[in-house]
Write a protein that binds this DNA or RNA. Structure first.
Length: 938
RNA sequence: GGGCGGAUAGCUCAGGUGGGAGAGCGCUGCCCUUACAAGGCAGAGGUCACAGGUUCGAUCCCUGUUCCGCCUACCA
């Protein structure tokens, strides 16, 4: 235990310096690592499968192994850690399952870049060597993000750290693939998919980002084959694809064109003639010219139209999205143009085709047109629809139960407003393309018999990968098959594709717990309790986990899904390295401390709203940490002497007051955390600690502590320790390091604050009467301070005060607290009496109404000679207040003279209005008198 | 094109079930009052986007408008 003694204790013991000379500011740097070490060695993060306590579990959204902690991670994981620490302190058997994601495309890109820097390439290395290289890379850099999470204070169960490419998780992936295939929910087919010509792989629909751009709509003339005088005008945004057209569609009920259905047009720039077909689905009569070209190999709608009309598919682009020689040949493009077109990129091809069409009079017009452009979410390259054999998950049968689970409340989305989004997406979901043409990832467990496919398996890609044609028959199995079921030979080639990274992520909640084994972990911690995630991966990840969880465990993977917002910069812009507006959480932690960062993020996590983060805000919470630090210093300095064991009711009014307020704060924090209102919980803590505990309670406690030997001091010391220790526990989930550091220095029981019990509100401690009474005292003090502040009187100048009140009750209150008022309002003495007693000669006067409606008047004497200026300032303030009151009075009078209001408003509102009116009148009358007095004076 | 969210103090945002507008930061004034100048005390600052409606009463509920985000979509 000794090496972990906090700074407080070490310093005050090891050096004989007086306690007052403890560090004045909190230094997070030398605190954080020490306590994290301590927690880890003590094994506090580890969850037990043998515990009898009710479980609470969260699986981390696995960050990419290539990742470095960004502010989004910081938010996501701070919130998770708050929940986990809160529940752990509440006594739950808590598991926070950590891990990382192999991030197929992203990781492959990183390692490829490294190879290029070394002067070699992935292709030169070959698949096996390349994958080895990625593993080496992972071994070296893969846990950077893990270290960064630790820096953030994340209390993950690191003993259980997982990786999506681990053997266990890979086994789960294979198992799921095979079972889905057996159930007919996975199939292979040649279909049009989204293709990234830079990554050279297929992408799923949601991996395509749509960007609205100002494009052009081209009108092109297609003359009838047997009567060139008749021209069909088609409209397109992609004129270069016309070379691959295999039909033109018109609406069957469009009188302008329907007589042309069944005839043929000559496709410009080619030797081909293509049919005119009628298609009510594809064609919108209102749009463009009412006639559409059909290019089944390069457009999703056209692909489907092509199926309907059994049209041939002419693919003209290669995998790099360049016009391929064979494509152009198949398209029967005129020889003259073909030579100039070959190997051109899409934009170049478009320019040339348009130019050529125009030169020959086929171009009828160009108009501006807004359209959406699809881009690869990893590299931002424009995505092409590309015809190729791929693996798909038939998703509808999986989506339906996932819809139901949310509909019937087995899964709750928070905030609820995302529910419709989620449901809408799932109800309208399309099959999921899961194969990727990269090397890093889970290779698809499908094999092809070389013997049966002797003629089919010869072609290879430039990187040496064998091309498996769509008609090849896959054997899907958990391990390499021994014999071919058809020919019983044993020579196989494995499908070279790997699975979409999100395929393995979808299994995360149960694969990390050991599935398909029925492990104790799975029994205890599944379904998990809460998932905390950003809305950007609601579809990518959350929806798919629900589908897979239900399919393979029969249970939902989690009960609550808390969806937090994105972190943006002050301007509301998405943070990105290229814009240079990133706030790096690591440098924030260096500069302001981890606790300040965590508290900032928590306090800004309002539901359904993006977080616009400014460093000033973080600085503010760094100051908050320092404030707490100094409150702790104050308490430690004043701790000498016995502490009373007396029950609360025997303690002072202020002690009872702060206890009551503390328990309201406890109540508020717990309630808000229950509702995932991290912001409200954080704000309640901030408000209470700074503005009630420090600003008032610590100040009010000073006189009581002055006489160390007094019984009063013993009571107050006890209250200080009890309340502050409780407060630290209450704050711990938000600011784990600071609270541990201080807690260890305070009298406490237990080894660590992180396993101490979380405070619960004791309603018996709530005391309305005392809160009202102290509230009145605060009002009097503030009123008198205001008076002197307006006159610019320095705090060091003690003034004579007089308080008058007509009612005994009010005078008694003031008498009871006279010492407090004298001290806090900076008075030299205080005279209390009825309305007959005199004010000092040079005095400014004020008045206020107490909580029970009694009016009190007060005055503070000013130094001679300052009266003239003081009167003016005082006058204008009183005038202002007077007009406010007048407006208030008028408003309330109007209400109360309205018979509808009196008869229809609820009684308590009526009562409140009457009381307010009465008090306003009282104060108004008093103020008028004071003002008159001021005016009357020379 | 659909869907969702937002518009409240100079800035960033809170404001369960309608009943005297709040916080943080910033700003102004006075203060080094031995826990804290990363601080204390006090203060200024708002036709709650606009127009209607419901109601005794609307920042809150309803309708419409404008502007701004986000998600989604195959209108060539």
């Amino acid at each position: 235990m000794l090496p972990y003694l906090p700074n407080f204790v070490q310093k005050s013991k090891s050096q004989t310096m007086p306690r007052q000379q403890l560090e004045k500011t909190y230094d997070p740097e030398q605190v954080e690592e020490r306590w994290y070490q301590f927690w880890t060695t003590k094994g506090y993060f580890h969850a037990s499968v043998n515990s009898q306590a009710p479980p609470y579990s969260i699986v981390i959204p696995p960050p990419n192994v290539t990742g470095s902690l960004h502010i989004g991670h910081a938010l996501n994981n701070s919130l998770q850690d708050i929940l986990i620490r809160w529940r752990r302190m509440q006594g739950r058997n808590t598991l926070w399952m950590p891990g990382t994601d192999h991030a197929g495309i992203a990781t492959q890109i990183v390692v490829e870049r490294q190879l290029i820097a070394e002067g070699t390439t992935r292709e030169a290395l070959g698949r096996q060597k390349f994958v080895e290289r990625v593993w080496e890379w992972k071994a070296e850099y893969g846990d950077i993000i893990v270290q960064q999470l630790k820096r953030l204070g994340a209390s993950c169960d690191w003993d259980r750290l997982r990786f999506t490419m681990d053997e266990g998780l890979s086994r789960a992936v294979r198992e799921v693939f095979v079972r889905l295939h057996e159930d007919g929910l996975i199939y292979r087919g040649k279909r049009l998919i989204n293709w990234c010509p830079r990554c050279l792989t297929a992408l799923s629909d949601i991996e395509v980002e749509h960007e609205e751009i100002q494009g052009k709509l081209y009108h092109i003339r297609y003359p009838l084959a047997d009567d060139p005088s008749i021209v069909l005008l088609v409209a397109t945004t992609r004129p270069e694809t016309m070379l691959g057209d295999t039909a033109v569609a018109v609406h069957p009920e469009d009188p302008r064109y329907n007589r042309l259905i069944g005839r043929k047009v000559s496709l410009p720039l080619t030797h081909r003639q293509i049919p005119v077909v009628g298609d009510p689905i594809l064609v919108d009569r209102e749009f463009g010219t009412g006639a559409v070209k059909i290019t089944p190999a390069h457009d999703f709608n056209d692909f489907e139209a092509g199926e309907r009309h059994r049209l041939p598919r002419v693919a003209i682009f290669n995998e790099h999205a360049q016009l391929s020689p064979t494509g152009l040949q198949n398209a029967e493009v005129e020889e003259g143009v073909r030579g100039r077109l070959v190997m051109l990129s899409v934009p170049a091809a478009r320019a040339l085709v348009v130019q050529e069409l125009e030169a020959r009079g086929f171009l009828a017009g160009v108009e501006p047109h807004k359209m959406a452009l699809g881009k690869c979410y990893r590299c931002k390259t424009v995505v092409e629809p590309y015809l190729s054999p791929q693996w798909f998950v038939k998703i509808k049968p999986l989506a339906e139960p996932a819809v139901k689970a949310v509909e019937d409340g087995r899964i709750r989305l928070i905030p609820e407003s995302w529910t419709n989004n989620y449901l809408g997406w799932l109800r309208d979901i399309k099959d999921w393309c899961i194969s990727r043409q990269i090397w890093w990832g889970h290779q698809i467990p499908a094999w092809y018999c070389r013997n049966c496919h002797a003629d089919l398996l010869h072609a290879t890609k430039p990187d040496g990968t064998v091309i498996i044609p769509p008609e090849a028959k896959p054997i899907v199995a958990r391990t390499t098959p021994a014999h071919c079921p058809d020919c019983s030979m044993g020579d196989f080639i494995r499908d070279p594709d790997v699975l979409d990274t999100w395929f393995s992520s979808a299994l995360w909640p149960f694969s990390t717990l050991g599935w398909p084994e029925q492990t104790p972990e799975l029994k205890v911690f599944y379904p998990t309790s809460t998932l905390v995630t950003g809305l950007d991966i609601l579809f990518f990840w959350v929806a798919r986990m629900v589908m897979m969880g239900l399919k393979f465990t029969g249970q939902v993977p989690f009960r609550d899904v808390y969806i937090h917002a994105l972190v943006r910069d002050v301007e509301g812009q998405k943070m990105s390295k290229s814009k240079g507006n990133v706030i790096d959480p690591l440098s924030v932690m260096d500069r302001y401390g981890t606790d300040a960062l965590r508290f900032t993020l928590a306090s800004m996590a309002s539901p359904g709203r993006d977080i616009k983060l400014a460093t000033e805000r973080i600085e503010g919470y760094r100051n908050f940490a320092n404030k707490i630090w100094n409150a702790a210093r104050f308490i430690l300095i004043n701790l000498e002497g016995p502490r009373s064991e007396a029950p609360l009711r025997e303690r002072s009014l202020t002690d009872r007051w702060i206890t009551s307020r503390l328990h309201r704060c406890i109540d508020s924090v717990n309630r808000h955390l229950d509702l995932y209102r991290f912001d409200e919980a954080a704000n309640a803590l901030y408000q209470f600690i700074w503005h009630e505990y420090c600003d008032w309670y610590l100040e009010l406690s000073k006189p009581a502590l002055a006489d160390k030997g007094s019984a009063q001091a013993a009571h107050t010391r006890a209250t200080l320790v009890e309340t502050f220790e409780t407060l630290l526990r209450l704050l711990h989930p938000f600011m784990p390091f600071l609270t541990e550091e201080i807690w260890q220095a305070l009298p406490h029981t237990g080894d660590s604050i992180m396993v101490a019990p979380y405070p619960t509100a004791n309603e018996a401690a709530f005391d309305d009467a005392i809160e009202r009474e102290i509230g009145d005292v605060q009002k009097v003090i503030t009123g008198m301070r205001d008076g002197r502040s307006v006159q610019g009187i320095p705090p060091s100048m003690k003034l004579q005060g007089v308080i008058r009140a007509a009612e005994d009750e009010a005078r008694q209150l003031v008498e009871k607290h006279r010492d407090t008022i004298i001290k806090q309002a900076g008075l030299s003495n205080l005279t209390v009496g009825d309305m007959a007693i005199k004010y000092p000669v040079h005095a400014i006067i004020g008045s206020l109404v107490l909580s029970h409606g009694q009016l009190i008047e007060f005055s503070i004497a000013l130094p001679a000679g300052t009266m003239e200026a003081a009167k003016e300032r005082s006058k204008s303030r009183k005038e202002k207040r007077l007009s406010e009151l007048a407006a208030q009075i008028e408003q309330d009078q109007k209400k109360l003279s309205n018979p509808d209001f009196v008869s229809k408003a609820p009684p308590e509102v009526l009562e409140k209005t009457r009381k307010r009116l009465e008090e306003s009148r009282l104060e108004h009358e008093k103020l008028s008198q004071e003002l008159q007095l001021l005016r009357a004076q020379p």
